[in-house]
Structures are given as C-alpha cells and as structure tokens.
Design a protein around this nucleic acid. Sequence first.
DNA 1: GTGAAAGCGCTAACAA
DNA 2: TTGTTAGCGCTTTCAC
Lengths: 319, 319
Amino acid sequence: MVTLHDVAREADVAVSTVSRALSNPDRVSRSTRDHVLLVARKLGYQPPRSGVRTQMLAMLVHDVTNPYNFGLIRGAEAQARAAGYTLMVGDSQQSPELESAHADRLLSSVDGLVLSGSRLPEQRLRELADQRRLVLFNREASGLPSVVMDSVGGSRQIIDHLVALGHRRIGYLAGPLESWTDDERWRALSAAADDLGIEIVRHGPFLPTLDQGFAAADVGLGSGVSAMIAFNDLLAIGALQRLERRGVDVPGEMSVVGYDDIFGSDFCHPPLTTVTGPVEDAGRTLIDLLLGIANRPNPQITLPTQLRIRDSTGPRRTG
Amino acid sequence: MVTLHDVAREADVAVSTVSRALSNPDRVSRSTRDHVLLVARKLGYQPPRSGVRTQMLAMLVHDVTNPYNFGLIRGAEAQARAAGYTLMVGDSQQSPELESAHADRLLSSVDGLVLSGSRLPEQRLRELADQRRLVLFNREASGLPSVVMDSVGGSRQIIDHLVALGHRRIGYLAGPLESWTDDERWRALSAAADDLGIEIVRHGPFLPTLDQGFAAADVGLGSGVSAMIAFNDLLAIGALQRLERRGVDVPGEMSVVGYDDIFGSDFCHPPLTTVTGPVEDAGRTLIDLLLGIANRPNPQITLPTQLRIRDSTGPRRTG
DNA sequence: GTGAAAGCGCTAACAA
DNA sequence: TTGTTAGCGCTTTCAC
C-alpha cells in the first residue's frame, strides 16, 4: 500500500506538502503540485479507504444512454435498493482506458463493482477482483463470477427464422472489434449459417449508435443481401430510419433484425424483430452475486434468449 | 462531526467494537452489531473522508432509464471527462427519502454533486451544500447555483401553436405532484391559456412512464378535449400508443404534445410534436458550475426552449 | 466477543 | 510556499 510518506520521499518533499497537493491544490505552488501529482500517479497512490462499508455499489457500462442498459440498470437498482445499497452507474465510452481509470477511483469508495461488457484484459480484471468484490456481465473470465446473455440460442433462432422466410444471403452489421459480445454473436451466426448452408457476410465494424446505423444500412444495401442482422437494436433502428428515407420497403425489399429488444424497438417503424432476454433478471442476479447471496462461489451464469418477431422481417421477394 | 468515539459512548461499548461492527461485521456478535449500527445511524455517523480529491462527481436523477436524461448525462459526462473526472449517475426513483440517503452516502466519496429535479426541501439542500459543492438542475433554491430549462417559453409556444390550429379546449396530463418542473409547466400553460381566452383542464397526476401514458390517454379522451399536452414525452408516447390501439386518429381526432424531445420522440408513430431545448449544454454547464469554472458565484441560469412541430398535432376537426 | 492501548496515515497549526 | 510537529480518527494487536 502506497502512503503519503512514500510519495513524499519519492518526490523529495514533506508529507504535508503532498497532503496539500492532493487535498488543497490551491495551497501549493503550481510546479511542486504538478510534480507531486505526477509522482503520486506513478506510484499508484490511492486515497486511504477507511474499512467502513459505504453501502454503495457501482456499475460501469459502455454507454449509459444506450437503452439496452435500461433493463439491466432497473434490475440491478431494484435489487441493490432492496438490500439497502445505493447503486451508481458510470460510463466507459467504449474505452478500456477510461474503464480502468473509473474502476480505480471506484475501488476506494464502493463495496462492489459490476462491469458490463468489460474490455479489460483478464489479468487486470483479476487485479481488481483482489481489491473489491467484482462481477461481470456479458463477459467471462475464468475464476470470476459472471452473467451472460446467451448469444448462441438467439442467433440460431434468427437464422432459422430468416431461412424459413426464404433468405439465402444475409448481411451482419458488426459491432466494435473489441466487443466480446459482438464476437460471440458473429460466431454463433456464422455457425448457424454454415449448418444450414446459407451465406452470411460481415460488414463493419460499426459503433452501436443510431447514426452508425445509417452508414450500416447503406453498406448492407450495396452488398446485395435480402436481410440484415444488426449487432444491436440501436444500429438496427438507425438502419430502419435510413432505409425508410431511401425509399426501401421493409420487410418487402429488405428484412432487418436486431439484438436486445430495447426501449423503442416496439414503436419504431416498422416495429423491429429482435432477440430478447431477461435483462432485468440479469441485473438482479449480478447484485445477488456481488452481495454474496449465491450458492456456489464463482458461478458463470448464462441466461436464455428468444427471438421476438415483429414487422421488420418478411418473406424474401422472389424475382 | 460524529466520530467512532461518539458512537461508542452512546452505544456504551469500546471504539474498537464500533470499528469492527462497521468494517468487519462478522467479527462481532449479532446483537451488539445491530445495536451499534442502529446508534451509528441515529447519530448520523459518516465514514471519515480523507480530504484527498476523489476525482469523482455524482449526479442524481429520478430515473436513469428515462431517455430525457440522455442529453443531460451525455453533456455532463463529456465535460466531466474533459476535466479528468469520473461521473457516476444514481437513481432516486422519484423518492425524496431515497434521494436524501443516496446524497448522504455520496458526500463522503465525491468532489461534487448534481441533483436533477430535486425534491428535497431547501433547508436540506443547503445542508448538503455546506458539505460539498452542489448544483441543481430544473430546480431553484435561493443561494444555490442552478440550471433550469425555461418552461415558460416552450409552454407559451405550445398554446400559441394549438390555438392557431383551432383548438379551444385542451387537456394537460400532469406529472407528479411534488415535481417542481410540473408546477412550472402547468402554471405557464394556464397563464398562456388565460391570456388567449381558451380552456385548459388538468388531469392526473401521473408518473412519467409509458404505462401511465395509457391511462392518461383514456382520461384525456373521456374529457372531450381536442388536444392533449403531456407533462413529458414518455407520457405522450404512451398516450400515442394507447390512442392508436383505440383507433383514434392522431392528429385528425386528437392532437398530442410532449415536453423534452427524448430519444424515440422522432421515430414513434406519429412523430411527436414536443418542446426541445439544449439539454447537453445544460449538462456541460452544470459540471462547469460544479468545478467552479463560472464567472459569478452562485448563478441561476435559465436556458431557452422551443417547440419542435412534428406530425402529432394538426387542425381541430370541426363538426 | 470485547476492551485497552499502541500504531498508522492524514490533516492542520505553527514556524520559518 | 514549505517543513516540522502535534493531534485526530480508525484499525489492529493483545490480553482477558
């Protein structure tokens, strides 16, 4: 454990100076402050944490404003509240660096941490888990507790559904390269397509946002497929908007499928066929694991998903 | 400031016992633990906070999963990130008690706090402001810095718009009674209606959720108005869904207006006429105020709003 | 399981 | 502005 004393020695100043630099930056000269802060950072100084329970839990997601997280947050919030805890949600902006920095800061002030779709290396995850209780969502790492929405089942159902409608060439609008979930989905889709002897082509990567859906739709249209599967609903809804603007009939000329069944996927135009799952359950389960209300020590839980068929998919137009 | 010593005296045990009860609950007997925790809670014990900056800010909203907060959160997150801070968002579930409890816990671990639409009494707000930097969104309290979306301008524009379309009896689907924003909106709407000599009737209160929008639509329909203004877009979109299901033509038989221009209000059916404003700016400004990057000491800022006209409003059908 | 007391890390008061 | 030092709150060790 790094103390003020250590920092003071390394920076060659008095402990009080370090204390001031960290607590009352105005009470110290600019140059020494910068120097001290640099050394503190280098040594990995952490504010001392009184062992007193904070009754706070934290969850880090890639984008708080992605409706996908709604169910997750609701479930987790409810369960945390029921147990007398405060849940705070943070945003890592799809960036492993930011995720890591936030996690560091949170360690000293929360009793437990949920990482959703973490992009940190296993090594780093284990480091974090050594200091605080840690659970993962949509990411697995050996020895760490996790909850994952089953991508295989839902993906297979998508392919079955599209093939039943006569589609033989399908496009996949991929998510971020670093995304564990994207990888899972793509692998499950390709496997299912292989099994049924149809063709699936991968486009992208795209960021999971409405805007990127516009671009994705154009790419998909240009590739001559009759159906597109988007990495998630945000991308899919963006694609629907773009297709409508370009005068492409959905599902007449193009079928579109998403993942996650987010807020809006039922009232967009046309309502979106998508993979749905018990995300609120997942949120609750994550908190249960965090608080140690689980049977086994480090369970890796997979929750089932199903295809919810709405109006954005239809028979391939022949001819 | 309450110390372990105080708790120990009041609970008639040694400080070490209190320390254990709070940090290592397993190392103390069940009965004394419960007793100590109760006393600690009664005295309002707070874990000691090393003055070291945590580089964390917190924002409390009523519902993290209300898309209204998207812009706010994005703006605030971006500005916090730019300044090297971590922003965490918490959910008060429309409950002042929960808001207060969360705020208490956060005080000891963040450098500043944003309360959105706070329902705490001014007295309590000032108490909090004494301990940490505090700024308010969509709530004003004398002596405290705040940012508010102007309800008066947007409300007046709604009434002007509806009157221009021939509407003479209008319904307002009210938000929660304790909501400062609801109060502002209702007063501005009534004033504008009075000025123009038309009738506006208040229904509700309703919680600002899609589900409550279903109920609100039914109430509005039954009251013989030709246009409905909802407290916010969530309520309005819920109402649109209900009207569609009941076979009511929008805007032919009923016009609908919302507030906030949330995610989904542009792709619901029909796209919603709503009051929009620079919410991301608001988010950024809040963080600026929190970090003291402001000119005046405790500014009360009001940001302008405009009516965005889409397809959910039209001429009153005569006859 | 609990209390007494030593030890530790941080802050603040004071001197330079 | 910076260093010295006393003091404070919490944890931990040790005795019972």
